[in-house]
């Protein structure tokens, strides 16, 4: 089996939005919507500050609440890789998955169905990195298979301190942020 994951080095990330715009062109994300985004988290008071910049998106959780709450099975886990996807013509637009996602990663596509990051599964299946990873000028993003101990993502996670978003929500996110 394989488990796709993303490892993002917040030390290198400069928050330039390249991942966001690459996703938009690659996937034709409609105007006014975004599947990925930049978050800046600042702590402290001037001038003693810390800032973490993160490129965020669907975490493709191991325990995806959006999948378990979907009444029609439109939201599902795609194997191999454990990527969480939405089948457009099964989605009824009940928005339960939007409410179920603690990361607010989903949105309702103007055509009515729930939409979100797909890990660029169409690219991954052709052996390419997701669009956001492949364009990042700071090389802060890495995509790979967690189940493969030799993969870059596994090695990075073994060698550097990291965190995931809202682990307390119990969703077991698969996007990790190196600190």
């Amino acid at each position: 089996m394989s488990r796709f994951a993303m490892v993002i080095d917040t030390r290198r990330c400069v928050g330039c939005y390249d991942c966001v715009v690459a996703c938009k062109t690659e996937n034709g994300v409609p105007e006014g919507y975004s599947r990925d985004w930049i978050t800046e988290e600042v702590h402290g008071a001037f001038p003693t500050l810390q800032m973490e910049i993160r490129s965020e998106r669907c975490n493709h959780c191991d325990n995806p609440p959006c999948v378990s709450c979907c009444p029609t099975g439109a939201s599902h886990v795609h194997e191999p890789g454990g990527v969480v996807l939405v089948t457009h013509d099964k989605c009824i637009g009940c928005k339960a998955c939007l409410a179920a996602c603690p990361y607010n990663a989903r949105f309702i596509h103007p055509d009515g169905y729930a939409d979100k990051c797909t890990f660029c599964i169409h690219r991954v299946e052709r052996g390419l990195d997701p669009a956001c990873v492949s364009v990042c000028p700071t090389h802060c993003m890495h995509f790979g298979d967690l189940d493969d101990p030799q993969s870059e993502v596994s090695q990075l996670l073994n060698s550097r301190p990291h965190h995931a978003l809202l682990p307390e929500a119990g969703t077991k996110p698969c996007i990790f942020y190196l600190t």
Binding site: W37, T39, E41, K95, L98, N104, F107, I108
Partner: peptide, 18 residues
């Protein structure tokens, strides 16, 4: 703490209102 999100998806931001 300042948290700045660049995401502005309808029904989702600034707070969920689906």
């Amino acid at each position: 703490t300042e948290l700045t999100l660049s995401r502005h998806n309808p029904l989702v931001d600034p707070t969920l209102h689906v």
